[in-house]
Simulated scan of single mutants.
Amino acid sequence: MAAAVTLTDVVLRDGLQDEPVVVPVPDRVAVARALAEAGVPCIEAASFVDPARVPQMAGAEELVAALPTTPGVRHSGIALNARGARRAIRSGLQEVTLVVSAGQGHSRANAGRDTAAALAGFEGLAAAHPSITFTAGVATAFVCPFDGPVPPERLQGIARSCADLGVERINLADTLGTATPEHVTESLEAVRAVLPATELALHLHDAHGQALRTVDRALALGVTRFDSALGGYGGCPFAPGAHGNLATEGLVAHLHARGVRTGIDVEHLSRAASLVREVIAAAPACPR
């Protein structure tokens, strides 16, 4: 089992995007600061999408400009197309996740195009911006709400195409939270078979309390990077039935109990989780 892992907290992006409120930028900055104080090394802070479609993500540039600079803490953002990626780069972020969907139905609902077109839209970005770290995020990597289970061989092909974009890491997402540990394991092994030198990460939602078992299986396969969200918040506005993320505090406790190092202070993390609940409770409702 791995001796240490790197966690990315995604509450400011995935955690907030499905809430019926818009958390003000200063409150999001306060959450980012609390995460950094807890020792969370990677924070996914924003999604560079049309705020008319996802009003919870409005103010992405303002947020990035106000993020605290903390030694050892890295901030990132996601984009569904080249326009969003360029916004993220102009904002000053040094890491951008290019998101595609393994499920065709989810790709059309989430990005407004099929998977092949979404991939093609990102071509040339890495070459044009060599100072930026690009990663790939594969949504609905295991189960699509519209198309059902994603065969591992389909995921293999999408992962190859992501690698061809010049990304440094591929993050496979169980967007619904319903994939079994066995399915995730099979898919991880399939992708690793064709991309043995590419780092793989997991982004887990948790519908049936199975996500921690999936973590254990992934650790046994050598995966050392995971996404999670404070409080277990999260979901996808364009994936019917999506459940909340694996909670960061639960994942950290699980890993620490197994002797796996995270570098995260559980007491500070608990305070950060309380802050998230407070700012969500106080936030104004989303515009209709």
Rank of each mutant, 00 (worst) to 15 (best):
A109T: 08
Y233N: 02
S131G: 13
A3Q: 14
G241Q: 07
N245I: 08
P145T: 11
E61Y: 04
G232P: 02
S187T: 11
L202F: 07
G137Q: 00
G124S: 03
L63A: 10
G112Q: 09
E44G: 11
P24T: 14
H205S: 09
A102Y: 08
V223K: 07
C236Y: 00
G231T: 09
L251G: 03
G234Y: 06
L93A: 13
G177E: 01
S101R: 10
L246Q: 10
H75K: 09
I132G: 01
L93S: 12
N110F: 04
A193L: 05
F226E: 08
G148I: 13
A126S: 14
R33Y: 01
V96D: 06
D14C: 04
A239N: 05
A218R: 11
L93F: 12
Q94W: 04
A32Q: 10
P196D: 05
G235E: 02
A239P: 02
G235S: 06
G244N: 07
D18S: 15
V73T: 15
C236T: 10
G235F: 02
A281I: 11
L188N: 05
V99L: 15
G77Y: 10
L255Q: 08
E44Y: 14
V266Y: 00
A109M: 11
D227F: 05
P181Q: 07
L80N: 07
L67P: 04
Y233K: 10
L246M: 11
V184M: 04
A272K: 12
T69W: 03
V184P: 01
A2G: 00
A4R: 15
C162F: 03
Q104D: 15
T140H: 02
V64I: 15
T262K: 09
D9M: 07
D27I: 06
A253L: 15
L219W: 05
P237L: 10
I170G: 03
A127S: 09
R160W: 00
